[in-house]
């Protein structure tokens, strides 16, 4: 077990069979039932834990950026590279998308070190894709790594990648109901970014309603109103990133904000 963060690569290994582990050999051949406790996502969780441990050992911070399609995830990475690179550790980026190299090309043009992961028909990134992606990316020790997840609001929240921090991003143009419609995403992150604040006056967006919904889903989450266009909120964004790069890794692979699930297995 890692003494820094308490993470353990043997944490999510195959769960033992339940107590009648031996009995199935002795039961009569007909009508027998095997009882198990096999977590179906164990393999992903195991790989995620390995990723987390490897990143942590090299002093890297890894942020899983999830959100609505078009929220401005790529724009945020571009602006961060352009405006904040001097205040932050070296930035490296894994771009997840079903198809195209567009986003990777955009962040590259903004000065980013990037590898594109195309999931094809897959609708989410998983720990194995990140493991391969990181090998290709080969970020220098101490880097700040952003993973731009596939623009999908349901399943990315289910797959731990081995990140240290999770951000959910939406835009004021997405409407007030997004947190309630996609509770898993918004309850599994530490920071919720509401982008395109510059358009606030042009659309029916009620910040209070959204903040209230978030307070019920994830009372501990920070909410940051931002505009990648006018750089509104970028001082707070810089501060948040600085804190994130200076704080350790969460040692749990269950991100549910305050509604955090306590691990069912002891960590070591």
């Amino acid at each position: 077990m890692c003494t820094h963060c308490g993470c353990s690569s043997d944490k999510a290994v195959l769960t033992e069979f339940a107590s009648d582990h031996h009995s199935h050999h002795h039961l009569p051949a007909e009508s027998q039932t095997l009882h198990l406790q096999q977590a179906l996502l164990a393999e992903n969780e195991n790989l995620a834990e390995q990723n987390r441990h490897g990143l942590h050992q090299q002093g890297m911070t890894c942020i899983n950026l999830m959100g609505t399609p078009g929220a401005g995830k790529t724009a945020l990475l571009e602006a961060t590279l352009q405006m904040l690179a001097n205040d932050l550790p070296p930035i490296a980026i894994l771009e997840g998308d079903q198809q195209t190299l567009n986003d990777a090309n955009r962040v590259k043009a903004a000065g980013g070190h990037v590898v594109q992961i195309n999931t094809g028909t897959g609708c989410h990134l998983d720990a194995e894709l990140i493991k391969t992606g990181l090998e290709k990316l080969a970020p220098e020790p101490g880097s700040l790594i952003f993973i731009e997840n596939v623009g999908n609001l349901v399943c990315p929240a289910l797959f731990d990648l081995g990140e240290s921090h999770r951000i959910a991003m939406m835009a004021v143009t997405d409407g007030n109901d997004k947190p309630n419609k996609y509770p898993h995403l918004f309850s599994s992150c530490e920071l919720i970014i509401i982008n395109k604040a510059d358009l606030m006056g042009y659309v029916d967006f009620d910040l209070n309603t959204v903040q209230q919904a978030i307070a019920q889903l994830n009372p501990q989450a920070e909410v940051l109103l931002l505009s990648t266009k006018t750089q509104l909120g970028f001082d707070q964004w810089r501060e948040w990133l600085t804190t994130a790069t200076n704080t350790g890794y969460l040692n749990s692979n269950h991100f549910l904000g305050t509604h955090q699930e306590s691990p069912t297995l002891p960590h070591d």
């Binding site: 039932t33 095997l34 096999q38 509770p183 309850s187 307070a215 019920q216 955090q260 699930e261």
Partner: peptide, 25 residues
């Protein structure tokens, strides 16, 4: 998610509920 405790509070810790477990063959 987002459902309050009977006391009205939204500040709680999940103990279980995310499991996806093969339990019987």
């Amino acid at each position: 998610l987002g459902q309050p405790c009977p006391c009205g509070s939204y500040d709680y810790t999940l103990l279980s509920g995310q499991q996806l477990t093969l339990t019987e063959i």
